[in-house]
Simulated assay, not measured.
Amino acid sequence: MTYPFPDDLVRAQRDWLATYRQLAAPRPRHITALRRRLLDLSAYLLWHPFWSTPPGTPTARVELRRLAHRQEQRGTRAA
Rank of each mutant, 00 (worst) to 15 (best):
M1T: 05
M1R: 10
T2L: 14
Y3M: 09
F5L: 03
P6Q: 14
V10Q: 06
R11T: 15
Q13E: 13
R14N: 10
R14L: 14
W16H: 15
L17G: 02
L17E: 11
A18T: 12
T19K: 08
T19D: 13
T19F: 11
T19H: 11
Y20G: 15
R21K: 12
R21G: 02
Q22A: 15
A24L: 14
A25W: 04
P26N: 13
R27E: 12
P28Q: 04
P28E: 05
R29C: 04
I31M: 06
I31A: 02
I31D: 02
L34E: 09
R36K: 09
L38A: 15
L39E: 13
D40N: 14
L41I: 01
L41V: 01
S42V: 00
S42K: 03
A43D: 01
A43L: 02
L45T: 05
L45P: 05
L46I: 00
W47C: 04
W47P: 00
W47F: 10
W47K: 03
H48D: 10
F50E: 00
F50C: 01
F50V: 00
W51S: 06
W51F: 09
T53M: 12
T53H: 10
P58C: 05
T59K: 11
A60I: 01
E63L: 01
L64K: 05
R66F: 02
A68L: 04
H69T: 12
H69Q: 14
H69Y: 12
E72A: 15
Q73N: 05
Q73G: 01
G75W: 04
T76Q: 13
R77Y: 14
A79Y: 03
A79Q: 10
